[in-house]
Design a protein around this nucleic acid. Structure first.
Length: 501
RNA sequence: GCGGGCAUAGUUUAGCGGUAAAACCCCAGCCUUCCAAGCUGGUGUCCCCGGUUCGAUCCCGGGUGCCCGCACCA
């Protein structure tokens, strides 16, 4: 465990040292749950997003893209259930450290002939009336009170006034005074639109990009020449006021999602095959951008833990140094979202299926993942320490497709102007196609190690053979450190093939 | 939110109630014909705000951030 936690620390430290990820607002002491991406980080993120967009949208016939706003009409979040679902007040027991949802914690005053003996508390359940009665009778016995127990009136904790809440014992310990007042855990960030700040101006920063897709479903169907089954994809920032952001960029309060809503015909025999198909497509994609296969897993949500509208949900997981966690959730959501929006907006969102000659609200498969989590998984997969001739070497073995820098271009030595000139010409040629770096400082080996640490897959070196011999250059492979001589044209084709598979 | 630990250069760490140090990295130059060679030079508000003190990076309080555990994660 200690070893594992130091691994993530090494990765975090490398990420900062080489300009991948910085803590947000660092010069002001930081801001919990927010991160900034540096020069290399922004390239890696862009490459991940581009690879996803390319593979999920452009290279498929059944997908179109969308870019909806971060702030939308707040009614969208009422329809989606986020306004209610995100505001559960929570109660903590200071002694037992248990946390309860205030609306699931019930309490009643125990009275005998009008005199109060105190309160009893318990968690919501079907049998809570009987259990509460048993607790009350036990209390009556313990205090040796004579008389008639009055009817108990169980009420949720959040509906009691503050004086009453102070009398309620913790369900865990039975002691009075250890429960905190209910506290709101509002996961949606609020803001105000317009100059006046009042209740009517409240808007939310989206907690997911998906609802922008549902809200535009009719627009896309009316204008996009799409036929079910088809999908709408979107990449964009989302915001959640997480209670406890943890694990570096794994759970942050501002993050970026890549989401697909894949619309399919209704019917219980339809969704399972599409669901399975998407799990396979997505897993293959992760492996394709260089995630270590052994670190990828699947986790099926048990039925009782599913949200009420979901038919199934399978997570694609990744074994991070701090544990195995969700990378992407692939949910079968039925037609919950479209039917909610149809109801709340009053607009007919039904799709006319020409092959079936009928109208329906399509069901949906939702593959949804975080750019930042993928970024971290790419980083963790790539981070390696090996040994070259007895020397320790740190490298990031990024797949060439996502590598922030594709190639380093070097003159073998810098005090020979012809070598420098030739290398700079090559650099400028490559620069028009890819993000590449030029470096002439120090010994060649040092420059190789330097690009290894930022995950540059190829090093191209101009030497005396290049300017005096056959014109070939040395192409050095990051992972094997093997070199081969290629003509400039061969080298370009070699790179192209590996960077854009 | 709770409990515990931590906070010194870009990184990893040393150190001290009296104007802060090493290694590596980075930048410039010299040298260098393929894997972190060498030489010279350069780069530091000891997380923030208070308090104690003649004097605080060090002691005390509060805050912020990070790590671990618990809880939470529609």
């Amino acid at each position: 465990m200690a070893k594992e936690s130091s691994l993530i620390e090494e990765i975090v430290s490398l990420a900062k040292r080489r300009g991948f990820v910085f803590q947000s607002s660092e010069i002001y002491g930081g801001l919990n749950g927010f991160f900034d991406y540096g020069p290399l980080g922004v390239e890696l993120r862009k490459n991940i997003k581009d690879a996803w967009w390319e593979d999920m949208v452009r290279r498929r016939d059944d997908m179109v893209g969308l870019d909806s706003g971060i702030i939308m009409n707040p009614k969208i979040w009422e329809a989606s259930g986020h306004v209610d679902g995100f505001t559960d007040p929570m109660v903590d027991c200071k002694d037992s450290k248990m946390r309860y949802r205030a609306d699931q914690l019930f309490a009643a005053e125990v009275k005998v002939d009008g005199a109060s003996l105190g309160w009893v508390s318990l968690l919501e359940s079907e049998k809570m009336e009987e259990e509460a009665l048993a607790l009350a009778e036990s209390m009556k016995r313990k205090t040796a009170t004579q008389g008639t127990l009055e009817m108990l009136s169980l009420r949720p904790y959040d509906e009691l006034d503050a004086d009453e809440q102070a009398l309620v014992p913790s369900p865990a310990t039975g002691k009075v005074g250890s429960l905190t007042p209910p506290r709101e855990f509002n996961m949606m960030f609020e803001t105000h639109v317009g100059a006046l700040r009042d209740a009517s101006s409240v808007c939310y920063l989206r907690p997911e990009t998906a609802q922008g897709i549902f809200a535009n479903f009719k627009n896309v169907v009316d204008t996009g020449r799409v036929k079910v089954p088809f999908g709408i994809a979107q990449i964009g920032k989302a915001f959640r006021n997480e209670i406890t952001p943890r694990n570096f960029i794994f759970r942050s309060r501002e993050f970026e999602q890549m989401e697909i809503e894949y619309f399919i015909p209704p019917g219980e025999d339809e969704w399972p095959k599409y669901h399975r198909e998407w799990i396979d497509v997505r897993k293959a994609w992760f492996a394709g951008i260089g995630l270590t296969n052994d670190f990828l897993g699947e986790e099926v949500h048990p039925k009782e833990k599913l949200a009420h509208y979901a038919k199934a949900c399978t997570d694609i997981t990744f074994k991070f140094p701090f544990g195995e966690h969700e990378l992407e959730g692939i949910a079968a959501r039925g037609n919950f979202d479209l039917s909610q929006h149809q109801e709340h907006s009053g607009k007919n969102l039904e799709y006319f299926d020409e092959s079936l000659k009928s109208k329906y609200l399509p069901h949906v498969i939702e593959p949804s993942l975080g750019v930042d989590r993928t970024f971290l998984a790419v980083l963790c997969s790539a981070y390696l320490i090996d040994e070259i001739e007895g020397e320790k070497r740190t490298l990031l073995s990024f797949h060439p497709r996502v590598a922030p820098v594709k190639a380093g271009v070097f003159p073998l030595v810098k005090n020979k102007p012809e070598l420098v000139k030739r290398a700079r010409d090559l650099y400028q040629r490559l620069q028009k196609k890819w993000n590449v770096v030029y470096d002439q400082g120090g010994a060649i080996g040092r420059r190789y190690r330097r690009i290894d640490e930022i995950g540059v897959p190829f090093g191209l070196t101009v030497d005396f053979e290049t300017i005096e011999g056959d014109g070939s250059i040395t192409v050095r492979d990051r992972d094997s450190t093997k070199q081969e001589r290629l003509s400039e044209e061969e080298a370009l084709a070699f790179l192209e093939e590996r960077i854009n598979p």
